[in-house]
């Protein structure tokens, strides 16, 4: 279970507070959506869960499986099962995709006390998962994300997620920049990971993705606070009314 209590977060290098007391409970086996206007703090929350040190937790706590993770390094969190699919996956020139995937997977396996995968086993696994996500093999031969389209990058994120088998998945606007076919493929990838042992937080600006990844609950974030929580119908309601009442003009 993910438990966020009275979470206050500011930007580390100045004193701008972005998250102003977030409370949220996400039990294992459930999928929760976080919606909200641009600038409401959704990505900040995602980064803080992953342990980015641009942000500083000034108050409150984040516990995952009963353990406070706020002091853990990003790589330790990954080992503990936390995975963030980035809103803007970055391009890393010079780092071959396969080298990266292998280093990542084996680092996590080793730290979790599992055996590292042999080269053939690793290759087989990546090929299989990549095929599910319709990622062509020439994309895997390139430096990480370099020259990929927005949609291709998002698929790489889901590929990494399915390889690392996290137990807390945080997807930050994984739907943005995807056409409907890509959206379906990505949603299938996420749904395939649904399990009683796994908790998923889907951050999105639009309701569209939630047709494919049906959430158990929807939280609305505005001005750094959770201002409403409801069932999946709340997403539909927001689609109708927009975020006007939460401080953003309707699209």
């Amino acid at each position: 279970m993910l438990e966020i209590k009275n979470l206050h977060v500011k930007i580390a290098e100045d004193d701008t507070e972005i998250l102003k007391g977030i409370d949220l409970v996400l039990p294992k086996g459930e999928v929760h959506a976080i919606m909200g206007p641009n600038g409401s703090g959704k990505s900040t929350l995602a980064y803080v869960l992953a342990g980015k040190d641009d942000y500083e937790v000034t108050d409150g706590s984040i516990t995952w499986n009963g353990e406070d993770i706020t002091a853990m390094a990003p790589d330790e969190r990954a080992v503990a099962g936390v995975f963030l699919a980035f809103q803007y996956p970055i391009e890393i020139p010079g780092v071959a995709t396969m080298t990266f995937l292998r280093t990542s997977l084996n680092a996590v396996r080793k730290a979790r006390g599992q055996e590292e995968l042999s080269t053939p086993d690793f290759m087989r696994l990546v090929k299989e998962k990549a095929a599910d996500l319709k990622i062509s093999s020439d994309k895997l031969k390139r430096p990480l994300n370099v020259g990929f389209s927005g949609g291709e990058k998002k698929r790489q994120e889901v590929l990494q997620m399915s390889l690392l088998e996290p137990t807390l998945c945080v997807l930050d606007e994984t739907d943005s920049g995807l056409d409907i076919d890509a959206l379906k493929i990505v949603a299938e990838g996420v749904n395939a990971l649904r399990s009683p042992d796994r908790a998923t937080l889907v951050i999105t600006h639009y309701q569209r993705l939630l047709n494919y990844i049906v959430p158990d609950k929807v939280h609305v974030l505005s001005g750094g606070r959770v201002v409403r929580t409801g069932g999946k119908e709340l997403a539909l309601e927001l689609e109708e009314t927009g975020y006007a009442e939460f401080g953003e003009e309707a699209a």
């Binding site: 992953a50 342990g51 980015k52 040190d53 390094a73 990003p74 790589d75 969190r77 990954a78 080992v79 995975f83 963030l84 980035f86 996956p89 970055i90 890393i92 020139p93 010079g94 780092v95 080298t99 990266f100 280093t103 990542s104 997977l105 680092a107 996590v108 730290a111 430096p143 990494q160 690392l164």
Partner: peptide, 28 residues
């Protein structure tokens, strides 16, 4: 730092992530 965070968020410990990035730099 952004690259470093990305690699670490994928479970790669900091020294190894740094080495990977430096080796990518000279690798070019």
């Amino acid at each position: 730092e952004e690259f470093l965070f990305y690699l670490r968020s994928r479970g790669i410990p900091e020294p190894q992530a740094r080495a990977l990035l430096i080796s990518a730099f000279t690798g070019e």
